[in-house]
C-alpha cells in the first residue's frame, strides 16, 4: 500500500501541501480530485519519488519512496506534461524502458501497440498530444508496474481510447494486483472506476473514503410537509449539511445512511419526499464549494 504521513511541502512563500495524510490500499484504484492548484500533481510527484518532502513520509509497502531504486523499479508515473527523448520512436523508447524495468512485458507491449494502433517506428515528437499519452501509457503498462501513478491520463483522449485505457488499468488491477493512483477532473469517469476517493483542497486532504461509502453516506433530499407538521422538528436526528426552502419545498443535503433518512423523514408523512444519491461530481462541488450560493445553484 501507499501511505502518506504528515506530508509538508512549501514552494517559496506558497504552502503547497500541509499535514497531508493518505492511505491507498493495494490492488485498488484511488482517485485524487481537487480544484486547480489544490496540490494534486505535487502529491503525485512525491509519491513518484520526484520531489523531496519538506517533512513527513511517503512510503510504499513500508519503504520510503524518495531515492529508493527498488520502489522506483516497481512503479511508473505518467505526468500530464509528457517528455520523450527527442528523436526516439515508440520502439526505441520501448527498448530503453525494457533495459530499465526488470519485469518488462514484451508481449503486453506488442499487444497494446497493436490495440492502440500506433506506428512504432514514427518519431514520438511527431505524435499528437493524445497519441503521446497513449504511447506513454503503453510504455508504462508494459513495464508491469505494481504501482501506477497517473496525472490526468485521459485528458485529450477520444472516448474509445479512454475506454481502452480504463480497461487495461482495470485488467492490471484485477490480474496482477496493481495499485493505481489517478488524478483527473473527469469525475464521471472516475466515479465509474475508482475504489477510493481523496479530495484535496488547498494542500489538505478534505475527504478520503471508499467511493461507495462516500456516496451512501451523503444524500440530496427534497421534502414538503403538511402545515400541521412543525417546521422546527422536521429533520431532527439528521446531520443536515445544507438547507434551503423554495416555497413549501425544502431542499437539503444530509450526511446520514439512506435508511436513517427514510426513517426520520418518512415517519412524518411528507407530502413530497425524494431521496437522491449525490454523484461524485456533486459531492466534489458541494465539498469544495462549501456554502457558496453559486455552487448551491449548480447542485439543485
Amino acid at each position: 500500500m501507499i501511505q502518506v504521513t504528515d506530508l509538508e511541502k512549501r514552494f517559496g512563500k506558497v504552502q503547497a501541501l500541509s499535514s497531508l495524510r493518505m492511505n491507498i490500499k493495494k490492488a485498488s484504484i484511488y482517485g485524487l480530485v481537487g480544484a486547480n492548484g489544490a496540490g494534486k500533481t505535487t502529491v503525485l510527484k512525491h509519491i513518484a519519488g520526484i520531489l523531496r518532502a519538506d517533512s513527513g513520509h511517503v512510503t510504499i509497502e513500508g519503504e520510503d519512496v524518495y531515492e529508493n531504486l527498488r520502489v522506483k523499479e516497481r512503479s511508473c508515473f505518467i505526468p500530464d506534461d509528457l517528455y520523450f527523448f527527442g528523436s526516439y520512436s515508440l520502439k526505441e523508447s520501448a527498448r530503453f524502458y525494457s533495459r530499465l524495468y526488470p519485469v518488462w512485458n514484451p508481449a503486453l507491449y506488442t499487444q497494446m501497440a497493436a490495440r492502440f494502433e500506433l506506428d512504432e517506428n514514427r518519431k514520438l515528437s511527431r505524435f499528437s498530444k493524445g497519441m503521446q499519452k497513449q504511447a506513454a501509457f503503453i510504455l508504462s503498462m508494459s513495464a508491469a508496474p505494481d504501482y501506477l501513478i497517473l496525472d490526468e491520463p485521459i485528458d485529450g483522449l477520444d472516448p474509445l481510447i479512454r475506454k481502452l485505457v480504463w480497461k487495461y488499468i482495470v485488467d492490471g488491477v484485477a490480474e496482477r494486483g496493481m495499485t493505481v493512483l489517478v488524478s483527473s477532473h473527469n469525475l464521471r469517469e472516475m466515479e465509474g472506476i475508482c475504489d477510493s476517493i481523496g479530495m484535496l483542497a488547498n494542500g489538505k486532504m478534505l475527504i478520503e473514503r471508499d467511493l461507495d461509502e462516500l456516496k451512501s453516506d451523503i444524500h440530496k433530499v427534497q421534502a414538503a410537509f403538511a402545515e400541521d407538521v412543525p417546521a422546527e422538528g422536521r429533520y431532527e436526528g439528521l446531520r443536515v449539511l445544507h438547507k434551503e426552502s423554495r416555497g413549501v419545498v425544502d431542499l437539503l443535503i444530509v450526511r446520514n445512511p439512506k435508511e436513517e433518512v427514510e426513517r426520520v423523514i418518512g415517519g412524518k408523512s411528507p407530502l413530497i419526499f425524494d431521496l437522491l444519491p449525490l454523484s461524485l461530481e456533486e459531492i466534489f462541488i458541494y465539498e469544495i464549494g462549501g456554502g457558496n450560493h453559486d455552487i448551491d445553484n449548480i447542485l439543485f
Binding site: 519519488g49 520526484i50 531515492e67 523499479e73 511508473c76 505526468p79 506534461d81 509528457l82 517528455y83 520523450f84
Partner: peptide
C-alpha cells in the same frame, strides 16, 4: 530545464 522532462526523468528508476 522543463517541468515535464524533469519529472519524467526523475520518475524513472534512477537515483539522483
Amino acid at each position: 530545464h522543463a517541468p515535464g522532462s524533469v519529472s519524467v526523468m526523475h520518475a524513472l528508476p534512477f537515483t539522483r
